[in-house]
Amino acid sequence: MKGTFGDIVITGLGSVSAGGVGTGELRETVALGRCMLTPVPDEILGESGHLWGKATAFRAGDFIPPLKARKLDRCSLFATVAAGMALKDAGVDMAAIPPERVGIALGCGFGGIGNSEELLRGYFTKGPEGLVPMLFPNTVPNAAASNASIEYGLKGPNVTQVQRFCSAESAFLMACRFIEEERADIMLTGGADDLNPIIMQGFKTIGQLHSHAAGFGEGSGIIVLERRDHALRRGALIRGSVREIRTVGFLLPGREAEGAAMLKGDAKPDIVSLSGSAAGLPILLEGMTELPRLEVGKLVGRSLAMGGVAMAALLLFLPEGKRALHLAASPEGPIFAIDFLGGPTVQS
């Protein structure tokens, strides 16, 4: 399916990842092509030779009072801090906007797994008395978006998506649709994921450390979306616009070309951003092999919702008037193609 969603523009970005805390650090990492993946400590996997993208520079206490930060899981901390950065970047004054007009649609793949493990370990070792109630609320994948909504008073649509490597892109589609329907004037979207030892051990168990789970990362990339007229009314800086979103659930066996054709846009992009397993699907890249490519996941790590960081990085580098295609894919679907136009240029 495909759709344009009116004149939706990007007015703010926020990012936390192995590439640094803040979009300035992410920009520098990407500009220098600096790989921030580091070795996974041997004690986690019982073997060496694996890399991950840990957000080691991130200190929650730099942004959130320690007592409050203690109540949030790591994924929620990433999302809450990145959302705060994006709101600030967009110049959104929550005191001046009805809170029910600002929403959040977030992709989140592994949020809640860490708390789930800790809660269950308590049960397995001590029985019901070992269950720590405080851990339970943040076992849900929507904890990250909801904690961010509580922190900033976002009362508009609040939704979390997880759909494989396209979790952030799935949320992005929802955010655009909510603006199109006028369910919200401003939507925060993107993704958040954390990475901890139990997730890595799980990847090892199912034999994915050398395939889909190689070079996983953590962090959050948040994008502020709104209608152009809304952005102009409040004097916001427009970083780019959303031209079209196309998606298929998966490429049906024997009908791959038909599905791939549905993902093609009407104009050739100037730059291609690849996320998830898109680089492994040549059928998506036909006719675009010579174009400049941005693969942020190779630098900071990929994950189910790290498309948020990838899209934020793309928008940081997209020159005014240039067209970008962001492709995200998972081995069993879905596949997303999102067209962006750089700067405040109005779409033709």
């Binding site: 929507n142 998506q161 759909q163 659930g249 998966f250 879905p334």
Partner: peptide, 8 residues
């Protein structure tokens, strides 16, 4: 094959 999404 039209769309695949999971709300959580």
């Amino acid at each position: 094959g039209g769309y695949q999404g999971s709300i959580t």
